[in-house]
Design a protein around this nucleic acid. Structure first.
Lengths: 156, 156
DNA sequence: CACTAATAGTTACAGAGTGGAACGATATAT
DNA sequence: ATATATCGTTCCACTCTGTAACTATTAGTG
C-alpha cells in the first residue's frame, strides 16, 4: 500500500490541520495553545509550583517562566508565595483566568462539533473508541498534547 | 465535554506521536521526513523543476535548495540540465534513490502495521473510511503532509 | 531587434522558538 | 556548620523558518 493512504498518514495529516485550526480559534482570545495548556493545568492543580507544572507537562523550567509571565501579565494567573517554601511560587487561577478557561472550553466544543459534523453519533462514538485504544497502546499522557511540550521528553 | 476526550484532541495527539515515530524509523536510513517527501515526489514526477516541486509541496524555493542539495549529495537525486530552459534544473531519481524509496516504503508499511496492531481488519477499514471522510471535508492535498511543508501556505 | 518584465536557482539574513548552563536565594541532609 | 539539591530566573547558542536581494535566463512588447 502506498503511504498517504494508511491510518498513520491520515491521522498525522489530520492531526496537524486540526491542531492548527484550534490555534486559530484560540487566537481571538489572545491565547496560544501552550498558554491554554498551562492555564488548564493550573486550574486542575491550584497552588502548584512552576517546576511541578513543568514536570507534568514536560515543559522545561526556563520556558515555563515566560509562559507564566504572559499569563500573569494578562491577569489570568497569579504567582503567590508558597508558605512552606519561599523558593517556589504557588500558581493560582484568578477569576479572569477561570472565565477565560470557560471561554476556551466553549471554543474547543465548537471545534469538536465542526470536526465531527460529517459523522453520525454512532460513528463518532466508534471513532473515539478506536482512537482511544490507539492512544492507550502508545502510553500517551491523557489530556497532554505532546506537541506543546518538550521535543526531548518525547524520546525519553 | 472536557477537551482531551474529543475526536479532535485524540487525533491531534496521536498524529504528533505517529509522525514523530515515523521520523525515528526513517532516521536509520539517514533520511528526514522532508527529504522523504521530496524524494517521493521526484519519483512521481521525474524531470520536474525545483520550483514546480516546491509549488506542489508548498515548500519555498529557498528551502528546496538545501533539501535537493542533501539528496544529491547522497546520490539519491540528480539535477540534470533542462533542454528547453537553461535556468531550470530537471530533477531525476538515481537508481540509489529508487532503492532508497523502496526501503522507505517498507518502513512505512511496518509503521502502519504497528499502528493498526490492535485493530481488526474490519475496524481498520472502518477507521480509514471515517478518517478519509474527515480529510476530504478539510480539502487536504492527498499524500502531502502539511507539517512538512510551509507554515504560511496552510493559511492561504 | 532592443528593452523591459518575469522566472529559476541560489545566497544571505533576520526573526522566532527551543533547551541547556549558570546564577542567587532558599531548603534539606549529614 | 557545611555541603548538596532545588526553585525560579536570565542568558545564550542552536535550529528552523521565510523574505529579500542577486545572477542568469526566458518571455513579452513595441
Amino acid at each position: 500500500m502506498s503511504p498517504g493512504a494508511g491510518v498513520g498518514f491520515l491521522i498525522s495529516q489530520l492531526g496537524y490541520v486540526i491542531s492548527g485550526r484550534f490555534k486559530d480559534l484560540l487566537a481571538p482570545l489572545g491565547l496560544e495553545p501552550r498558554q491554554f495548556l498551562v492555564l488548564r493545568h493550573v486550574a486542575q492543580a491550584q497552588g502548584s509550583s512552576q517546576q511541578a507544572l513543568g514536570k507534568a507537562l514536560r515543559i522545561p523550567a526556563s520556558r515555563m517562566v515566560s509562559i507564566v509571565d504572559s499569563l500573569e501579565r494578562r491577569g489570568l494567573v497569579e504567582r503567590r508565595a508558597n508558605p512552606t517554601d519561599r523558593r517556589a511560587r504557588a500558581l493560582h487561577l484568578t477569576p479572569e483566568g477561570r472565565s477565560m478557561l470557560a471561554r476556551t472550553f466553549k471554543v474547543a466544543a465548537d471545534h469538536e462539533r465542526a470536526i465531527c459534523a460529517d459523522l453520525s453519533p454512532a460513528e463518532r462514538e466508534m471513532l473515539v473508541g478506536m482512537l482511544r485504544r490507539l492512544t492507550l497502546a502508545r502510553q500517551l499522557v491523557p489530556g497532554v498534547h505532546p506537541a506543546l511540550t518538550s521535543e526531548e521528553a518525547a524520546a525519553s
